[in-house]
Design a protein around this nucleic acid. Structure first.
Lengths: 386, 386
DNA sequence: CTGTTAGCGCCTTCAT
DNA sequence: ATGAAGGCGCTAACAG
């Protein structure tokens, strides 16, 4: 494979001139043309490894996530990618699989490869250690939570207010015993969301009794079991908030198995996904601005890459409440339709359309991208968040 | 950051000795211990960029996929990863987004970074060009289809027989006008699946009339429109096969909007996903062995890495038919249940359980991994494929 | 604007 | 078993 010396020889210039042509140094247009022609002729591709060694920095950015199967991350990845590509950086995805050890390996790779930067969704608050990267000047931005090991740029969704808003919504719909299925106590996300849930209960005009909280494992099965146990109580809840989409799926299955059907029992969930609009009735969710988080993280990275010494920032992005049939009690008290099982339960607020013709496409291929591309033709409700 | 010279000095040996300790050369155990201690002390991390430059090869493997949001790829990625990690290779994911240009960029990166190998799901049969990689000795394995530009190792699912089997199943269930919603004519996957569909029709005891085929775009919206048009025909189909999961979602929505409900109209789809078991009734699918494909691809890559000159291989892996409520006409002719809209439509074949407690978890976290880990406790039906 | 030169960190002969 | 030395391909500093 040709290198710059070969090109230089063919173009009858020095290697430095070839390098300048490649990297935008000042070269007479005549020589530059000769270089380009020679490079083309020889099929020359600059060797990034050598360049990286010399420059002590590559132009590849690592995005380390904990679960590639989670739609949140796919949207996040697009946000990172779109911003990075605009700055001529490539993004590689590393799937740490929620395993601190695997994550450490990828952090090692990022370090040893002198990557341009790392966007990381830390597998663990305590164990994730990014100091080695920082010591070597590799910018690191954390998403969702920040590692204990260092104070760094962080981008998070405003989960607490999201949980608060959706809980308020359930209470406002007239549900009286709203329960929460949340994740393990060790998960800060689970705790933050729970906090918002509890705050909404404390604030009501009439003080309410302490709401039921079930701790599960962020998985479908856990959601199923938690919901089942809640329904077995002497005073079962009449609505439930699941703090992630998998547990919501489990909760829906549990309800279904007992012949209960939202919004008879109200259901809402954290995390808007592909199937949120696909199930009948469609599921009320708190949408996390995954794409925007990715964008913001990449932007912070680029900023810090340019000016390493600015103060670490903490960005908190608002969530959005997507109110759908699963939590609209009003729809449930209407007469049951005859045509199809859920023909009216799909009715949703305002200008939103039923899950049929158009919207699901947006969801499937990444609704969040729509924002970036201006393809979001549906009138947007104002954010339910303050 | 410390380099081997620093370590060598601290350990009072030569840099070559340090290198040998790192890479398993012969070093006296006493010196080796000194080197290790010094390396530990200095927090030394070998610089992979320099190593890559010297060795002309990295130990990172690229997986270039066309759509990170497609569950097929997430499972595929796990398969690649698990095999690669066993050989101490890291895997980075590159999301080419079905864009040949983006794909070319990532191929470029893989080339310029001297990656250990590339597993690629080619965005285009015609445009994807991997010759540059091959010329430089970077092994490339194609998944699903092989690029026109070269004959290389390829791993595919047996889509034609999968389509054949599921179509047979629909016919055997007694559906008489089975239509197919397939992808664009330019997509070889769409054409191969269609071929299986048509073959099943030709083979029946009684020759059947030529079945309806709708060409759509592999997206939800396209599936919706195609289904709508099929239903508008004078003789609408009583069953439909969608050749990917997104179009299936669209088709389901279209049926729903007309008050039709599977299995009244039979529905089956290519691609088993998270929500296949979540919808009611659960969706009959042709499961593609994504994880296994990933494994096989990585294994081919490793093999070729070691022995570059073996003949290119073509592996074809069997699909599996997952029969669920959406295509079981017998269930549909039973009296409509009173408790909940879908209480009985969930009944599924054999030992398979309803979508509640356990199975969805397996799905959500990657059913295919279960196979690898031996966690698949449910009795397996024999493969419907021959 | 252009060429010469040194060296990024490592591995790998080649000697010993 | 060990050390010395060259060079992978590129860029940045310095001269001209």
């Amino acid at each position: 494979m040709a290198n710059i010396y070969d090109v230089a020889k063919a173009a009858e210039v020095s290697p430095a001139t070839v390098s300048r042509v490649l990297n935008g140094g000042s070269v007479s247009s005549e020589r530059a043309a000769r270089v380009r022609a020679a490079a083309e002729e020889l099929g020359f591709r600059p060797n990034r490894v050598a360049r990286g060694l010399r420059r002590q920095r590559s132009d590849v950015l690592a995005l380390i996530i904990s679960d590639i199967e989670n739609p949140f991350f796919t949207a996040l990845a697009r946000g990172v990618e779109d911003v990075a590509r605009a700055s001529n950086l490539s993004v590689v995805l590393c799937n740490a699989d929620d395993d601190p050890e695997k994550e450490a390996e990828y952090l090692d790779v990022a370090l040893a490869e002198h990557m341009a930067g790392v966007v990381i969704f830390p597998a663990s608050h305590a164990e994730t250690d990014v100091t080695a990267l920082l010591d070597r000047g590799v910018p690191v931005v954390a998403v969702d939570r920040s590692p204990e090991s260092a104070t760094i740029d962080t981008v998070t969704a405003d989960d607490e207010n999201g949980a608060y808003a959706v809980t308020r919504h359930l209470l406002d719909e007239g549900y009286r015993r709203v329960a929460c299925i949340t994740g393990p106590r060790a998960s800060s996300a689970a705790m933050v969301r729970l906090r918002g849930f509890l705050r909404a209960h404390r604030e009501g005009e009439a003080p309410r009794r302490r709401p039921r909280v079930a701790y599960a494992d962020f998985r479908v099965r856990g959601g199923y079991q938690a919901m089942s146990e809640l329904l077995d109580l002497a005073e079962p809840p009449d609505a439930v908030l699941a703090t992630n989409n998998l547990m919501a799926a489990g909760a829906l299955a549990a309800l279904h198995d007992r012949g209960l059907r939202p919004p008879e029992v109200g259901v809402a969930a954290f995390g808007d996904t592909f199937w949120s609009q696909l199930v009948r009735p469609a599921l009320t969710t708190v949408r996390q601005p995954a794409y925007e988080i990715g964008q913001a993280a990449a932007e912070l990275l680029l900023k810090r890459r340019h000016t390493p010494d600015i103060e670490p920032q903490r960005l908190v992005l608002p969530t959005r409440l997507e109110i759908r049939g699963s939590s609209r009690r009003t729809a449930a008290t209407e007469p049951t339709p005859t045509a199809g099982p859920a023909a009216s339960a799909d009715a949703v607020v305002g200008a939103e359309q039923p899950a049929g013709p158009g919207q699901p496409t947006g969801q499937a291929t990444g609704q969040v991208r729509a924002t970036g591309r201006g393809r979001l033709t549906r009138p947007r409700r104002p954010d339910a968040m303050t």
